[in-house]
């Protein structure tokens, strides 16, 4: 097991270097000059332009810039944002709890609704239940997040007035972030109604962000259930006279979950990508929105740092899934 763990762990390094190389070169391939963008229509005189480029370290050849960047990354220094002049890591850590809170809630929503939907569709294969669930999940999967988000806002917030439009907390509550997780911060504060407000602000973005993972989980659970239900041990369990409920939940679902767990792990990446759009629509102050804005401003250190941390997180989540896999199914340890 230890050997398996280390083997997987060493695979992480090439992936990590690959990510830094890719983000670095892609960012520098985008046309546009960070200095010009800051000056706008006003323009900037060539001397000041050169000065600013030097201040930003953009006057050096690309390979030297990359080497300097990667050396600093290994020292734990992701650089300072061109725009706010603050360390990128500090900015990321300030915003990350918001993204994490939203992603966890979205994943919870996806699992809570996706798993039962998949199980029902699998067990009741070919019935109207199955068709409805599959059609809805296909629709959910193909729905553009931006459009879906706006539709939800217009219906639930503007038309029905049930949920707040955007943000993390009503403007009437003045709560200073302690942990960065609004649910925890509002619970710890003594302002009545703040927790409820934070919770209500989470509903729509969680649904919007969780829709695609929900659809994927539902479809994956269904097909996995269908396969497992055909297995001999399920037939044996039925033959033993066990109740349907026990056969499905204990014998079939547990085994059907293995590929579903992998999918949930893979969906973490999808979730973080989806967070970029969801956060923009719902004015959610997380890293997704921050990276998007940084791209618009050509804030290279922020883009590079943000993507690098997120990619590293995804790499580690996948590593975790691999290891979990090895624990659940020992055969995997030996075949790899």
């Amino acid at each position: 097991m230890v050997q398996f763990f280390f083997r997987r762990f060493f695979h992480v390094f090439p992936a990590f270097i690959g990510v830094t190389l890719l983000t670095f070169s892609l960012i520098h391939l985008i046309p546009g000059d960070a200095v010009e963008l800051r000056a706008g229509e006003r323009g900037i005189d060539p001397v000041r332009h050169a000065e600013m480029k030097a201040e930003m370290g953009l006057d050096k050849p690309l390979h030297i810039q990359y080497f300097r960047y990667i050396t600093n990354v290994f020292k734990g220094d992701l650089g300072k944002s061109y725009v706010t002049k603050k360390p990128v890591l500090e900015e990321f850590l300030t915003l990350f709890p918001a993204t994490l809170e939203l992603s966890l809630c979205a994943m919870m929503f996806a699992v809570l609704f996706g798993l039962p939907a998949g199980v029902i569709a699998g067990v009741k294969r070919g019935t109207p239940f199955d068709h409805t669930i599959m059609t809805v999940s296909l629709t959910g999967y193909s729905m553009p997040i931006f459009w879906w988000g706006l539709l939800m806002i217009l219906f639930f917030s503007v038309f029905l007035g049930w949920t707040p439009v955007s943000g993390r907390l009503s403007a009437l509550f003045w709560i200073e972030p302690q942990t960065g997780f609004m649910l925890i911060d509002t619970l710890r504060s003594d302002e009545p109604g703040a927790f409820k407000s934070a919770l209500s602000h989470l509903i729509l973005p969680s649904i919007v962000l969780g829709t695609i993972p929900l659809a994927v989980i539902a479809r994956m659970t269904r097909s996995s259930m269908l396969e497992v239900l055909k297995e001999d041990y399920v037939r044996t369990a039925r033959a033993k006279g066990l109740s349907d409920r026990r056969v499905i939940l204990v014998h079939a679902l547990r085994n059907a979950l293995i590929p579903v767990i992998t999918v949930i792990g893979l969906q973490t990446g999808v979730l973080l990508a989806g967070a970029i759009l969801t956060e923009t629509i719902f004015a959610w102050p997380g890293v997704g929105k921050w990276i998007l804005e940084s791209i618009g401003r050509r804030d290279y250190p922020a883009i590079q740092g943000g993507i690098l941390i997120i990619a590293t997180l995804i790499i580690f989540v996948n590593l975790g899934v691999d290891i979990l896999y090895g624990i659940i199914n020992p055969r995997i340890r030996y075949t790899h």
């Binding site: 706006l150 806002i153 217009l154 917030s157 503007v158 007035g161 707040p164 439009v165 955007s166 943000g167 009503s170 403007a171 923009t280 629509i281 719902f282 004015a283 102050p285 929105k289 804005e293």
Partner: peptide, 21 residues
Amino acid sequence: LVFSITPDASVRYAKLKAGEA
């Protein structure tokens, strides 16, 4: 005075309509 930062213009309009801004 509270600045509620909302980058999308459609969402800003929705907030205005819902009385949140």
